[in-house]
Amino acid sequence: MADEKLPAGRPYFHPEGTEASGITRREFLGVAAVGLAAATAAALSPLRQLADFPTLEDWLRKHYTELTPRDKEAIFERIRAQVEKDYGVRPNLTDQPPLDGVMFAYALNIGRCVGCRRCVYACVNENNQSRDPQIQYIRVLKMKKGSIDVETAEHYYEGEVPDPDHYYMPVQCNQCRNPPCVKVCPVKATWPEKDGVVVVDYNWCIGCRYCEAACPYWARRFNFKKPGLPKEELNPNMGYLSNRPREKGVMEKCHFCLQRTRAGRYPACVEVCPTGSRKFGNILDPDSEISNIIRTKRVYVLKEEVGTNPKFYYYFNV
């Protein structure tokens, strides 16, 4: 039929005497176009996982320190709606300002810690860290008595504690007065607050992880995947700069439980410690427990020689 309509010799461009291949130019281009479209769709398929595109307001948002109270309230309302959508609970999201005349400091009695890791999980439970993959702010190092050699410290001990030949040194963010993580941040997504706590704006962080590399205490954690947090384990009492749910691709770290401590309460790790090794308070108040410990006990800071000047102190019994 086709042979009748088309002029001889035109549709089949082949040397005389050879068989036609059976594929017309039109068919070939058609198949190629479909194939190209399918390949493009396959290549773009990861975009399907972008269920929630950032809104225009989120794209045009200013830095936290430049936000007006009205901007903040609009942003907080969007976060509340998002958390309610994702977790089925309307959160009590607050952004308490730093208290006047308060500089937070922490002290840990290294002679009392038994290494039970209650602080690790109290922190995870309070601060909505990802359960899977696991993100924990506190590491407990088990070390031989008589030395502070963090290179040979053991993270993965199990069973009954304390081991009589060893002692335990929990490490978390030292809330440095001279924080290297803040210096290296190319977008100023992390900064020290007036009460001395180094915070992260999870919406401003670009996920470059420079801060993680800069921190001499290995205190920063990166969300390589979307945080896996079961709905029923969400802590609905949350702060904007502290424990609101994080996204994939942002850094997070210990923030001294700002949602608790700026309301006057102890951090979750202090609250839970069964041995009372953990101490917290206002270092600017000369009568506070923390000031007294620093004044009267033998105190050291971790990696003093790197010049970070931490507000996290370790002390001995005597």
Binding site: L99, V102, G264, V270, S288, E289
Partner: peptide
Amino acid sequence: QGAHGRRNGYWNTAM
């Protein structure tokens, strides 16, 4: 003086 023992509740006794 606060160096030994457990504390719970509020670090800021005014609150």
